[in-house]
Design a protein around this nucleic acid. Structure first.
Lengths: 356, 356
DNA sequence: CCCTAGCATGAATGCGCTTTCATCGCAATG
DNA sequence: CATTGCGATGAAAGCGCATTCATGCTAGGG
């Protein structure tokens, strides 16, 4: 590869100054057509590609947005849960897709990077230094670190609530209406299907999403005067199909009357439960109603099709890019924005609604 | 955002030279612990983030790999086929995932960019200038342009054959064994299921993949003495579910004996066909066999489950990153590499094999 | 025919960092 | 006690480009 040609080489070869070469790329109209041709020809012969770094340095902007997300690959789960991992990645894939699309519309490229588990080397530093602004999935990077960075360039947090009781963080946030969605879904079960013995299955590991959803569940219950504990009926260690199946079995074997409905904190678990219930001859939705959350493609394909709440994942990515671009455009140093993206309850067969 | 702090600011605040500040980040051990602490403290107070641009400029390397792909989003299909696009979990998403993962393992981040339809502005120039090397999906960028760039930095082409009859391009290539896979699948239909009236559905728009697959189809037919034209039985404008359904209908309505099997150039279309056939009461695989190509997740979930050829999409991305990294490491200026990734025939219910 | 706009181009500076190379102490050595 | 040698730091020179400012030139206007 010897050494790459630079503006100087192109300038020399075409008999102009480097300023003119630069202008040919940045502002073609300001150069006489004939000169321009000469320069472009020389550039082509040399295989000249403008250095993005130099460009960025000189103009202090990169035309790139960033996206950081957690390292989902669990070395333990390697073989075991490849499928689950798949689902987890789906989430980030969709955000990537949405963000890429929106970024592109605004003329930006997208730099993506997942945190490297065990790599103490700051992922963020790497990305942050190369982009005009970036988005981070919640719990990828310590909020404090983000705050430091956000003092100098826009940072938006995805799917994470604003943090800190005393000291709210100053980041922009984009969330989905977890509580609201679960509340609506639960209201539907209560008022439209007349159910009153509802069980919620959440996760043991801390997750703001799950907590928000559960709180929506409780709101609906309380509003309708339906009994409902302070805590989910069950908390599972991981939100996988396998755990969902186990949870369904556990609830059935628990003794006492079966719940009329089980609401899971995500679709994965609900699907697992569907399988488990089918295995033991419990009919859904006749004997028991099952609901999920997320609206993954699989939810539509299982039998019975799963009633769930659809998350606008792709739109989250888009919203992130749009927000960043807006921040970059307006010099105004406005207050942090907190966007709550609406979700959609999808009524399908597993709650007793006619399949779509 | 005022103006971002630089090494100079940090140096001044911590009472050292900028060289030392730089060393603290690049080579911490070469700085006395006490000094290092001072510098880091100052950096933190200032919210200092090293500029990737300046870094890249000075060290002439970015630590970033690039990936360019075509603009898939069909403005027309916007509403109509949103689901198609979604369920498909697009090809490029998987490549992105694979490439990101491999890049990360090697310590690189990934810059992704789709070509902007109508944007004459060279996508490649934008990406190429910011990365150490990059991969391009076939037919995203004119090969000639790539060749110019590849003179100065590694470029690998994904899913595209080496081009040029007289003048083979000098790029590295990573392909999948399209012909081979379709041939195997077709042989299976012929010898194991005894089918002899086979129809192939390809695409009207030019695609080396589709052509390669069709040629594999023909090879198998000819080898078995099965009749098979020079051209696919049908070519559709776009390889979507909707078009697949339409194709199935067309073949059924065509008059004459129904084919015994329809092989589609991708899963999307095959799935669409499955729906269309079910609607009109044609039983798969009893009345007619259907096969796809790609092995998208959906193929396993439809009913009947779809016999198809699985493409190692994720691995393509990984291979691309690995290859680029190897190129960047070795100073050797070896000949272009051409990798052919193996595919796997997945026999499922839609060809009459027992469902898995 | 001279003067002035206005346009195309060149000279020069700086963007923020990495990287020799030189320097300065200071401990180990003769 | 003078010398070496080495580890820690500073000084300075770019890296490749964008950009302002200055300059030369040509075409009108007086």
């Amino acid at each position: 590869m010897t050494t790459a040609p630079t503006v100087y080489d192109v300038a020399e070869r075409s008999g102009v100054s480097i300023a003119t070469v630069s202008r040919v790329y940045r502002n073609p109209d300001s150069v006489r057509a004939q000169t321009r041709e000469r320069v472009l020809a020389a550039a082509h012969e040399l295989g000249y590609v403008p250095s993005g770094n130099a460009r960025g340095l000189a103009s202090r902007s990169t035309g790139v947005l960033g996206l950081c997300f957690p390292d989902y690959s669990d070395p333990d789960a390697e073989a075991a849960d490849a499928e689950d991992e798949d689902a987890a990645m789906l989430y980030s894939d969709q955000i990537i897709r949405g963000m890429e699309r929106a970024a592109r519309r605004h003329g930006y490229a997208l730099l993506i990077a997942a945190s490297l588990k065990g790599g103490p080397e700051s992922l963020v530093a790497k990305v942050a230094g190369r982009v005009d602004g970036f988005a981070v999935l919640a719990r990828t990077v310590p909020t404090e670190e983000l705050e430091v960075i956000s003092r100098r360039r826009p940072v938006v947090m995805l799917a994470g609530p604003r943090e800190g009781a005393d000291h709210l963080d100053h980041l922009d946030h984009i969330e989905v209406a977890n509580a609201d969605g679960q509340r609506q879904l639960t209201e539907h079960l209560i008022s439209d299907h007349g159910l009153r013995r509802l069980a919620y299955v959440g996760s043991a590991e801390e997750s703001p999403d799950v907590e928000a959803r559960f709180s929506g569940f409780r709101q609906a219950c309380r509003a309708a005067g339906v009994e409902c504990g302070e805590e989910p009926a069950l908390r599972v260690p991981m939100m996988t199909q396998a755990e969902g199946a186990r949870a369904a079995d556990a609830l059935c074997d628990r003794g006492g009357p079966l719940p009329e409905a089980i609401s899971f904190a995500n679709d994965q678990m609900a699907v697992g439960a569907l399988y488990a219930l089918a295995r033991r001859g419990v009919k859904v939705p006749d004997d028991i109603v099952v609901t999920g959350f997320d609206g993954i493609p699989l939810s539509r394909l299982v039998h019975p099709s799963l009633t769930t709440v659809h998350q606008p994942t792709v739109r989250m990515g888009e919203a992130a890019a749009d927000l960043l671009v807006r921040r970059l455009g307006g010099t105004q140093d406005k207050d942090p924005v907190s966007m709550m993206l609406p979700v959609t309850v999808i009524r399908r067969a597993s709650c007793g609604c006619p399949a779509d």
